[in-house]
């Protein structure tokens, strides 16, 4: 037996290669997570400092979650964000991917154009959308005023209580369309052209080809996108924070990510923040499992 064949028989060298990444994960992910669970039962008022003992009762923070009205707002908004992410981010990305897949010229241009927002920092995007939605002299208000749909004396406050959520969700959804678009386009490229040719010979229309070939063949890719969208929506922080810091206005724009940050970094309630972090992880696991079951991966 040659030495080349032996390398596949002996598993120990493989384990040696797997160990460092596992150590990395253990140190920088699993250990902090376990510590975070412990922190949720302790009283910690400063980041990096020792705890002042165990909470009384030890589950105080978990009880607080149910009585904290702002946590309710954050959860509600996050659920809405997940729903909108699925419908608009993945939905629009799918639509764009199908359209781009069906054109022969310019597909590379559209791929780059739709992917571009991903490479811009969320903070820069937040500042840009702040200018767009600004009350005095913002782009949208100026546009409406220039076409006579708005008086200069009474501009619209796009960030008021009634409109804040919509104003926040639009850029967040828009930002990641390109990400899912690229994943879906890659999925489309993996579908054999022979299937389309056979369907064309059988007289299938374009819509029928999408319905009976593309979508079923893209099922697993869509499933991956949904899982990523759900977990991503639970963690979203940067862009909403730049546009609506500290739940502005009137605490209506809290998300689980921004509320967790507020508790740890601005209010010094580190243990409560740790509890919110655990809820985010739990929600991520549960919701992605539900999504996986609903859109169960299929073998083709």
């Amino acid at each position: 037996m040659s030495s080349n064949a032996m390398i596949y028989k002996k598993k120990k060298p493989l384990l040696l290669f797997l160990l460092p990444p596992f150590l990395f994960m253990a140190i920088f992910l699993y250990y902090p997570f376990v510590q975070n669970v412990l922190n949720s039962f302790l009283n910690i008022t400063e980041l990096g400092s020792k705890s002042n003992g165990i909470n009384t009762p030890y589950y105080e923070n978990y009880e607080k979650l149910f009585h904290d009205p702002l946590m309710g707002v954050a959860l509600r908004n996050t659920m809405l964000m997940i729903l909108l992410t699925i419908v608009f981010q993945v939905g629009i990305a799918l639509l764009l991917a199908l359209l781009v897949d069906n054109i022969k010229k310019g597909s590379h241009f559209f791929r780059t154009a739709y992917f571009f927002p991903i490479v811009i920092s969320a903070t820069a995007l937040g500042l840009m959308f702040n200018l767009i939605f600004m009350y005095q002299g913002g782009m949208i208000n100026q546009l409406l005023q220039s076409i006579g749909l708005q008086s200069t004396a009474t501009p619209i406050d796009w960030k008021d209580e009634a409109r804040a959520l919509v104003t926040m969700f639009i850029p967040v959804c828009w930002q990641y369309v390109g990400f899912y678009f690229v994943i879906l386009v890659t999925g489309l490229n993996n579908i054999s052209q022979e299937l389309y040719e056979a369907a064309e010979i059988d007289g299938a229309t374009r819509i029928q080809r999408v319905h009976f070939i593309t979508l079923p063949m893209l099922h697993n890719t869509i499933c991956v996108c949904l899982t990523l969208a759900i977990t991503g929506a639970l963690k979203v922080f940067d862009l909403p924070w730049v546009m609506f810091p500290s739940g502005m206005p009137m605490d209506v724009t809290w998300l689980t990510g921004t509320y967790m940050y507020q508790q740890a970094w601005k209010l010094g309630d580190v243990d409560y923040s740790a509890t919110i972090a655990i809820i985010i992880v739990l929600l991520g696991v549960v919701l992605s499992q539900i999504a996986n079951r609903i859109f169960k991966e299929k073998e083709y």
Binding site: Y135, Q136, K159, D160, E161, M248
Partner: peptide, 14 residues
């Protein structure tokens, strides 16, 4: 009008 939904920088500009 937007005192609860605006920033210090914006009100300075007023």
């Amino acid at each position: 009008v937007n005192t609860n939904s605006t920033t210090d920088a914006d009100t300075n500009n007023l």
